[in-house]
């Protein structure tokens, strides 16, 4: 019998700080997909309108925002079509905030399963980000349909035009997913110790929406306060998205801003995975 090498699993008190076993997660890829399927089926199986909710939700929110901020408050959108502008922001923001909110519940919502069986805990957050990605694609399709209908049929004179930044869309989607995952992991690791953090996050994410250029464009904000918004890593993502669809007259595109978001997302993911890994091993004893 050979020595150490022949053992396939070794359980030890301490793992190295950054030891995400990617090979192991890959082994559980089927589980990730099954969780995605489960979430999809279970969320929409017994609702009256079923999957229609995915489409209705952003439409209703954008409509409300259009009425409140567009017509009542009369926010200056540089002349962009209000409903289209709101829907763009809501679609992007919806994906990010769903990722954060759902992943932040990982440990508490799954403590039953986690207490009974082992699989890499990261499987759950990853499946959540994927589930929401599907949802996002549906909503993105809705936005594109709405967009095309609006500029070709409703109002042909908006000055809106597609721009090259649209090619960055895949990067934006990945960035949003990474940011959502990162914040979600961070919060889920902290909520095992402090449960009331969840409530804080519930309304924190709503506040954060107003600290992002969703109901207003970035360039209408006074120059000396723009840095506050730009500190928010979502800002450049939303602006780039809008620049791609509406053209640069309606949104601010800046490579440095985008680079900042990329660096932010990477560092955040790195830190939160370390923390998640640390909590993962001991949370069953503390929860």
């Amino acid at each position: 019998m050979s020595k150490e090498e022949s053992w396939s699993i070794i359980i030890k008190p301490e793992k190295s700080l950054f030891s995400v076993n990617l090979k192991e997660i890959f082994k559980f890829k089927d589980l990730i997909l099954l969780f995605v399927k489960r979430d999809f089926i279970s969320i929409y199986k017994q609702t009256v309108l079923g999957p229609l909710w995915i489409v209705l939700q952003p439409l209703l929110i954008s409509f409300t925002l259009t009425v409140v901020f567009g017509y009542i408050a009369g926010i200056d959108l540089n002349g962009a079509p209000t409903m289209l502008f709101m829907l763009a922001g809501i679609t992007v923001w919806g994906y990010f905030s769903d990722c954060v909110l759902k992943t932040s519940d990982t440990f508490i919502a799954n403590q039953n399963i986690f207490g009974k069986v082992y699989f890499p805990r990261l499987v759950i957050p990853l499946s959540i980000v994927l589930t929401n990605l599907f949802k996002f694609f549906i909503q993105l399709a809705l936005f594109i349909i709405f967009f095309v209908v609006y500029i070709t049929l409703v109002d042909t004179n908006t000055g809106v035009q597609l721009s090259w930044q649209l090619a960055l869309l895949p990067i934006l989607i990945i960035l949003m997913g990474v940011l959502g995952l990162g914040f979600g992991l961070l919060i889920s690791s902290l909520t095992t110790k402090y449960r009331d953090l969840r409530f804080l996050i519930q309304f924190g994410i709503q506040l954060a929406m107003y600290a992002s250029p969703i109901v207003y464009p970035l360039n209408t904000v006074p120059e000396k306060y723009q840095w506050i918004l730009l500190a928010n890593p979502m800002t450049s993502i939303i602006e780039t998205f809008k620049a791609g669809f509406f053209g640069e007259t309606f949104a601010v595109f800046n490579w440095f801003h985008l680079l900042y978001s990329i660096v932010f997302a990477t560092v955040l993911l790195f830190i939160s995975i370390i923390l998640f890994n640390k909590v993962e091993k001991s949370f069953m004893d503390t929860i």
Binding site: W7, S8, E14, Y118, M284, D285
Partner: peptide
């Protein structure tokens, strides 16, 4: 401990296979 739900304080377990 064996099913890796929590980790041990000290000591180790080695296994072959799943």
């Amino acid at each position: 401990l064996l099913s890796r739900i929590t980790s041990p304080t000290t000591g180790e377990v080695k296994m072959k296979g799943r």
